[in-house]
Design a protein around this nucleic acid. Structure first.
Lengths: 198, 198
DNA sequence: GTCTATAAACCGATAGAC
DNA sequence: GTCTATCGGTTTATAGAC
């Protein structure tokens, strides 16, 4: 099990990704240099190219990993109830999951334009899979007569925008607990699609 | 009224700002060079410094002008009705105004971190003034018993996030007219804060 | 696996000619 | 008002020593 001095492939790789994620979120992809990332990790710039073929692929891998985690997390959410319960479960999951990974969410919405057309398309597919899950709930609720949604696709995007907005202000040590934020947002989401009382 | 050849201060200035706005929105502030902006305008890089002391001030001026325009536009909206009518007027104004200036809105939310602390604070004040206008409507509706809002500050931010979301997908030649988008969004906003039927 | 050194290009901003 | 030229510094990525 002896290991050569200076050989840290198994730990340097993750550390490169963590540093890149943090720095990209803080300063933006274009504003962060490979030298800054290397300095954060504690290696020289040249060593980074052992873990990524280039800077843009490093970004793409971070975004793709995040989307995979989002979809995997959603798959574990209990969706056994009806549309109303499902919509609340989705809203609460979205808030909770995204607040736990603010950096990844931030760059997922900010740095898409720094991807190649091909990589952009790949991420678009994954994002659409997530949106389709929400739209499916809205459609089900519409058919069951529990929801009044004018345009399910548009409403899906509007609700996700609203839920994402939590990232722009939430601070873990703020005046509101995570549970309360989840409750308020899922309540607003529920109301926004509910049948109007006549 | 004769003008010296090569003297175009009155038209080059606006052209610099237009080019910068477009390029910042497309590629991001950090990714755009002064040389790119100059090329777009049709002058040499050095000439840009006749119109801005530096790159960051150019960004700030674009953002500040935009926020001034937003506040001026809001001031002209008819707010003579009650809270319900005011909320619809605000929502429709927001959608309409922002969809007409997608580039300015985009960089207003993306490039704040590239401002100095001082310039960031100035913009924050203006943005807060806009948010306060919406929160005032929510508070009024809460007092009149027409709205059921859990936390007016949080709800304000959530509604603005939802309204801003329209920018991520709206295309002027898409399947929905501007009027219809306005109607759908203002309807969702209205429902999200409305009293829950018992 | 990491280092140093380097290539080739680009950056923001300024000085001075016209 | 705009140009050319330039300063001093940065960038991504690679080559080769260890």
């Amino acid at each position: 099990m002896a290991r050569k001095t200076g050989s840290h492939s198994d730990i340097t790789g993750p550390r490169v990704r963590e540093a890149a994620l943090r720095l990209f979120a803080e300063h933006g992809f274009a504003a962060v240099s490979m030298r800054q990332i290397a300095k954060e990790v504690g290696v020289q710039a040249g060593a980074l190219y052992l873990y990524t073929p280039d800077k843009q692929t490093l970004l793409f891998d971070l975004l793709a990993d995040h989307m995979r985690a989002v979809l995997a997390g959603l798959a574990e959410v209990d969706m056994s109830g009806g549309p109303v319960a499902q919509l609340e479960a989705f809203s609460r999951f979205h808030i909770r999951f995204h607040l736990a990974r603010p950096d990844a969410v931030f760059i997922s919405y900010m740095e898409l334009r720094n991807l190649s057309e091909e990589n952009f398309a790949k991420l678009g597919e994954m994002r659409r899979e997530y949106e389709d899950a929400l739209e499916g709930i809205l459609v089900a609720g519409q058919h069951s007569g529990e929801f009044d949604v004018d345009d399910t696709k548009l409403t899906t995007l509007a609700l996700i925008s609203m839920l994402n907005g939590v990232l722009t202000w939430y601070k873990p040590d703020g005046r509101l607990t995570l549970e309360r934020v989840e409750a308020i947002y899922s309540d607003m989401v529920g109301k926004a699609v509910r049948l109007t009382p006549v």
